[in-house]
Design a protein around this nucleic acid. Sequence first.
DNA 1: CAAGAGATCATCT
DNA 2: GATGATCTCTTGA
Length: 193
Amino acid sequence: MKLPRSFYEQTTIEVAKQLLGKYLVRKHPEGNAVGRIVETEAYVGPQDLACHASKGRTARTEVMFGPAGRAYVYFIYGFYNMLNLVTEARNYPAAVLIRAVEPMDGIELMKERRKSSVLRNLASGPGKLCQAFSVDRTLNGADLSGNVLYVEDLGEPVPKFRATPRIGVDYAGKWKAKPYRFLVRGSEFVSKL
DNA sequence: CAAGAGATCATCT
DNA sequence: GATGATCTCTTGA
């Protein structure tokens, strides 16, 4: 079943952990894409210096202040989109970054979009994943209870995982060391160990 | 292989 | 005007 809004209203850390092993589904006219989530990061609120919303409420961060269960997609480094899922209560800005998935369905389409035939290289990183799944800013604010982008729960238990500091947030002071990155143990589809 | 640079633009100062 | 929740390619050992 499709994860309901109430799922995303849990604490961000909890959502980030529980998303592991669930299935990210992207419906698209070209064809659908499905991947098993193997890596996430939690951005836990306004006090978290790694979280964009720590800079305040702006046009860009507005979505994170909205209700849980929507997509927060932003563009970075002039090249890449990042896909996040908004968590917690309205007016509390927090989200989970989807960092990597294991391709399950729509693999040919992903290979085309990524211009790579190496399975492990299709969605093993937040920028790659967005390319493979054709996620861009037109999906910013998209409701995850809709039929374009959502997460499917097949009732499987959350796989064994481990936690590390988040990637690429050296500027975040004491927050950079927090173990808010979660990876499925043993998966070869994560962005890096 | 590991390390480093370059690409390129929306967003905020 | 600076900078970033990245990726890819090149370099050199």
